[in-house]
């Protein structure tokens, strides 16, 4: 049974890419799944929650998902 599972699906999804950006791009060892963000959630609130067909990406303050700012190394 397990032989039929796509080997790709065993690679965990990349949490940075799930947030929106991963600086490793194609070199990332984790899976980058292209998805669509919910417009309402982007504006701030969507009443559908987990039932929404589009993604409500979770945010957390992480340096690794920032594009380098002025003066930063």
């Amino acid at each position: 049974l397990y032989l039929h599972i796509d080997p790709q699906s065993r690679i965990p999804p990349c949490p940075n890419y799930e947030r929106g950006f991963c600086r490793l791009g194609p070199d990332c060892p984790k899976r980058h799944v292209r998805r669509t963000m919910c417009e309402l959630y982007l504006s701030g609130f969507c009443p559908k929650g987990r039932e929404c067909p589009n993604v409500h990406p979770k945010w957390s303050y992480t340096e690794s998902i920032r594009i380098r700012a002025k003066g930063e190394k």
Partner: peptide, 17 residues
């Protein structure tokens, strides 16, 4: 639904709202 016990408010609200 976000008021229900066990609900995660961030499933509904973005930007920490």
């Amino acid at each position: 639904p976000w008021r229900k016990p066990g609900a995660d408010i961030t499933d509904y609200f973005n930007y920490g709202f």
